[in-house]
Write a protein that binds this DNA or RNA. Sequence first.
DNA 1: ATTAGGG
DNA 2: CCCTAAT
Length: 570
Amino acid sequence: MNTTSKDCSITFDEIANMFTPKFSEVDLSLFAASEHEAIGLEHFLMEPKCNRNLIGVVDFETFHSQKFFDVEDFSGAIEYDETKHHYAVCSNSAKEVREEKRESIEDMLNDNVFDGKTRLPTTGKEFGLDAKSADKLVILDNGPCKESYLGNADLESLSPGFDERDYVAEISYMSSASVPALQFTHNHNSPMLNQMTVHELHEAFKSVFGRETLVTDKQWLKHRVLFGLRNQVESDSDLNHIKCGTTSYKTEDKTLCLSSSDSSRSAASSIKCVLGDETMSLDWHVGRKGLAGLDLQTTSMELSEIELCSHDGGDKALVTRKRLRKPPKRYIEESLEANSKYCKGKSGAVRPRKCLKEFGTSQLACEDKPFKGSCIQVPFGLPIEEGHVKINASYWDSENCRDDRISSPKQLVTEPSAAASQDEISEDEHVTRSIVRKGSSRRKHHISWTPSEVMRLIEGVSQCGVGRWAEIKRLSFPSSSRRTSVDLKDKWRNLLRACCVQLQSKRKVKQGQKQASHRVPESVLWRVRELATTYPYPRESNSKVAYTAPISSSFPAAIQNRSVALSTSV
DNA sequence: ATTAGGG
DNA sequence: CCCTAAT
């Protein structure tokens, strides 16, 4: 199987890395969740459209491996599970799951034992499951921290074609909207909807649809509630790319179960189980908190990891499980740092920048049509500003035109002072933006270089020489918070590269003329080339030395007087 | 802290 | 631009 071989590429190292000490550290911070965080979470949970927000993938086997499902391990566990899960696919070690019978599953569920080696950290008969052809288990915890929704746990699949891949539990959040109904039914041990009173039905209706109704017709209400429940289940299923035909609504003791099953699709069904007992939520308390933290911390990552558990009959082969690359370290780092803000004691000083919250929550603002695709792209940058739009061609044109008018069309007179002052203005607003930006991400988001900046850089290089970036920055970019010495170096490297490219393509094609406009002007490049010969850049300038040899005559002037234009050739 | 170099 | 190693 394709997916299998792909999954097999996971190395043991990767798995091992999931358990770097970092995780426990991090997770600890999650539980120091301050009011701040809680609010953020609450906000998220209350988001109307976030009824089903998958935030993670977890293998139930985790619960087994974690003695009491402790906090520190949770997020690590998720990572681990994800991996392990894949690993299991190739290892064929979970074969035993295949042959599970429905009856035994029911028993196991009732006994809270899902598998010989997997046990949920809950006690007793909390799970009232309509386990008919059920492979999805959703556990709802109505603890104090809003209603967390641990959900969609692939417990078993009864499909003959079931494979270990399905042995996945997904964790999701559900808004509080659906909870009251569940709790409500929990109070009444009524197993059937039609045994409910009008008032009860109203409650259920409200819970399901999030609004009230004046209709008192029991039949109507019942239908609406059933309809709503079915839709909920179906939308859940959509998230998992599972289609469920029917939905049953059932209560049992202190639990409420919504199960959706479709006998025509042997494998597609789901069970939702509400843990209605307060004591129950204690068991899941840790998990919930972990999830809360996780939510804030690695939202997009988890989102990206949502797997498509298509239990849809035969087209399993069509299931594509794209593994998205892990989020960049930066992302993780920032997430961790943001969380660790509330976990003082670590490194006394709190870094001013970074503010993950924006990050997480904004990403979490899920849409209606969330996980339609086969994968979710990891949000990389922030949805922030597109502040400075591309100015490219016009920039150079305007500036150069200005400059060119001053001097001859072919010779670029550089006036650092003038250019700088004029640039400083725009620079300031850039700075402001960049600060704002830094509030949420370290990424600089590509501040395009203005012509004057480039000229200043060149001047700096001509004065100080290549490589002395710190000094160049001091001289040519004073009071410029952006453009670090590294930036200067990078830019210079790029300029040299541009020289190369333009030299090569110059004779060949004139087509590039169009694009050449928004590139660095030739006159500037010439100067760069010249400087490159004077101060050969460590590795990259060698290639163009030959070209610039004749120009070197003009070099001394350029050095001695920064306003001297590059009078060479062309 | 800076610089070089890879990504 | 970012990250890292080397200095």
